[in-house]
Structure formats: C-alpha cells, structure tokens
Write a protein that binds this DNA or RNA. Sequence first.
DNA 1: TATCTATATTCAAATCTATCTATATTCTAC
DNA 2: GTAGAATATAGATAGATTTGAATATAGATA
Lengths: 96, 96
Amino acid sequence: MFEKYARLFKVLADENRLKIIELLIKGETCGCTLIDKLPISQPTLSYHLKMISEAGIAYSKKEGNWIKYYINKDKLTEIKVFIEQIRDIEAEQCSL
Amino acid sequence: MFEKYARLFKVLADENRLKIIELLIKGETCGCTLIDKLPISQPTLSYHLKMISEAGIAYSKKEGNWIKYYINKDKLTEIKVFIEQIRDIEAEQCSL
DNA sequence: TATCTATATTCAAATCTATCTATATTCTAC
DNA sequence: GTAGAATATAGATAGATTTGAATATAGATA
C-alpha cells in the first residue's frame, strides 16, 4: 500500500516531470511540442514520459506519425485521496 | 513552484517515510517507540525524521529526555491542494 | 527505395539516496 | 561526575536516478 504510493510520489518528485504533467493537462499532446518548452533533451523527455505513463498518470495513443499523451486525471485524484486519508487518520490514545 | 513541490514529493516518495508519517499521525511521538515498528536502524530513522521535519511535514519539540515529533497537517493539505489545482487546470486550445 | 520526422533504446557518467556501523552529543538521574 | 537513555552525526557503501550522445526503430512521403 505505502509501497504503491511511494512509487507514485517518486514520479511526482521531479521538477521536469511536474512541468510535463502540467503541459499535458494544458493540452499539449506530443513530444515534439513538449520538447521546445523544457530544458531537457529528447531522450530525457522520452524517459520521463515513459515513467509517467508506466505509473498510470498518463496514457498514450499512436495517431499517425505522432504518439499523443494524455493525463489520467483519475490517478491524480487517487493520489489526492490518499493524502487526505492519511491526513485524516484519527490519533489513537498513545501509550506513552 | 514545481521545484518546491518536487522537493515535497521526494519526501513522500519512500515507503518507510510514509509509514513514519502514518505512525506520527496515529499518535506516536517519539523515535524510541517508532523504531520498534519499522525495519530500519536508529540512525536511519533519525535521517528520515530530519527529512520529514525539514520539509515542514512534521515539527519537533524537546520534552525532557525525548524529542517529540508531530505532523503538520496543514502541509499535507497544501500538497493535496497542489494536486487538485494541477488536475483542474483547464486545457487550452492546442495549436496542433 | 531513400529520406525525413517522431520517438525509443542503449550506454556511460555524474549525482543522489537509503542504509549501516561506529561514534558523538545531550539529558537525566544516581 | 558517572552511567544510561534518546537522539544525532560522520563516514562508507550499494544501489537508484537523471542526463545526454549516439544509435535504432517505425511510419510517412517523395
């Protein structure tokens, strides 16, 4: 359980990946336009997109010459809910 | 901005730190009891508690012989809100 | 078929992280 | 002041992560 979310947070724990996620949500869809807005090389972008996709935070569709990426907002909601649940755990009476 | 949250997510991106955060929320307060519930050594626990505290996710108070740790729930809320805000960005009309 | 474009993979390097052992620090209590 | 408990720091190490250069792949088109 924690292992699963630790893995998800790892994906969010990088400035460039957060920027990529924002750009995808704003409507960018292909690597060829993302690359102009990021301070990284094409192979590095490819690496990040793979991480984001494998985590289920985005998914991709081949469309002609391009691979289009889309954010899976449900996964973001799931992460949000996890944080809420942790935060709202009731404190037990502590033995100390 | 993204750099700030990338740093926060890094703190959440470790299974043991998530467990520590949960235990603190449940009412544990001192390292000496945390250590019995985690598969790590005392120096490693100390390292994680420092990371969590420096990120503002917890704070500590010296009380007699012990240092008590408490979770800063506002910081968790801040992280939750960040995810909501990202998720709810409106897509712009894409030029492609 | 040759070429071009978009994307992925391989590989190596530099850096960062989590962890332990050993040791130090800081209190408290005797 | 000595002893003991809780916690922190130093140093070392194994492993993970991020990155770019070079190269490969796959599809479209001339």
